[in-house]
């Protein structure tokens, strides 16, 4: 796909998304763009705010104050739309696969009933048609015995099967923006590959876009066009997958890459230190407390996200935020 053509017509443009929980700034001016038909990987420190971004876009965030803008093409600013309109968008134009499948499914209802009710609501199907479609979707996500499993309660399914049920529910309404929060962390690698292929064929191949939250950088390189790296609520590096993985400039991205465990590797060196708590977060670069390349002013002056190549400064191009890049 031609990058400049899509840059002109993004499906989603998030600008300066900031989320507070009490005093804590959970997200700090996060900006990202998503082109039509594009797949984006959101990677980064556990607790960095990846799920918060996805949940904020769905407008399902509780107990938080949200600032900024998130324009979904044809719908307007997701952060400002009236709730009634969001209700119509959810499931139809955008849907989310939640990280904790076990917690996202209702333990009191069978998984079939949960899927069928989404199908009836988003697709306007009658009961029989919804049931037939449900069997279809279960089979597509690799659940054998689809008929029988429709009447299972969530606790009767293995963790991986619950995850696949969530995938089926999220894809039920053919959304054009899918937010998939670690959809395959609980699956074995053969089914993971199958599910990722399935998600891509049901989204990218029909021009829909997808944001994958994931931790496996190798999988990100296989499945995603671009990567956004997040640390402690800030975007530290973003760009085409190849640039971010092979020509990364931010010390945190470099650190992540150094921790990838390929089969047979035994010489892992764990990085030092932890993310500071929110009341001790540096004003400037939030990685400054752990960064091997920190300069004296890093902790006080926030580094701006700047293009890696001054000739390519579009929102989809390679950029990083660091005063002393690798």
């Amino acid at each position: 796909m031609k990058m400049d053509a899509i840059a002109a017509d993004p499906l989603l443009a998030v600008t300066d998304l900031t989320v507070y929980r009490g005093q804590a700034k959970i997200l700090d001016r996060v900006s990202l763009s998503l082109a039509r038909g594009e797949t984006l990987a959101l990677v980064g420190e556990s607790g960095a705010g990846k799920s918060t971004i996805a949940t904020a876009l769905m407008r399902l965030l509780d107990g938080a104050e949200v600032e900024g803008q998130a324009d979904l093409s044809g719908a307007g600013d997701l952060l400002a739309l009236p709730e009634a309109q969001m209700v119509r968008l959810r499931g139809r134009r955008m849907s989310m696969i939640f990280q904790d499948a076990g917690a996202a499914l209702n333990p009191a209802y069978t998984v079939g009933r949960q899927l069928i009710s989404v199908l009836r609501r988003t697709m306007g199907l009658d009961r029989a048609a919804a049931r037939a479609r449900a069997v279809d979707l279960f089979t597509q996500v690799g659940i054998n015995d689809a008929e029988a499993r429709l009447s299972a309660f969530p606790h009767q399914l293995s963790g991986g099967m619950q995850q696949r049920v969530m995938v089926a529910i999220a894809l039920a309404g053919n959304p054009d923006l899918l937010l998939a929060d670690e959809p395959t962390s609980a699956l074995d690698v053969t089914i993971q590959a199958q599910i990722v292929r399935l998600i891509l064929s049901l989204t990218r191949d029909r021009g829909a876009s997808c944001i994958f939250v994931l931790h496996d950088l190798a999988l990100a390189s296989q499945a995603c066009d671009r990567i956004v790296v997040l640390y402690a609520g800030q975007v530290v590096e973003s760009g085409p997958a190849h640039d971010v993985l092979t020509r990364n400039r931010h010390p945190y991205t470099r650190q992540l890459q150094g921790c990838v465990l390929e089969i047979g590797r035994k010489d892992l060196l764990a990085p030092e230190g932890n993310v500071p708590s929110h009341d001790q977060m540096p004003e400037g670069c939030r990685f400054a407390t752990r960064c091997p390349r920190a300069l004296p002013h890093c902790a006080t002056e926030p580094p701006p996200l700047a293009a890696a190549d001054p000739a390519r400064t579009g929102p989809l191009d390679h950029a990083f935020a660091c005063w002393n890049p690798e």
Binding site: S46, A48, S185, H215, L256, L269
Partner: peptide
């Protein structure tokens, strides 16, 4: 059971070395 799945690789590295 899947104790380190869902962690970023640098946090995972800390727990695995531990």
């Amino acid at each position: 059971d899947e104790a380190v799945s869902g962690l970023d690789v640098s946090t995972q590295a800390q727990l695995l070395t531990l």
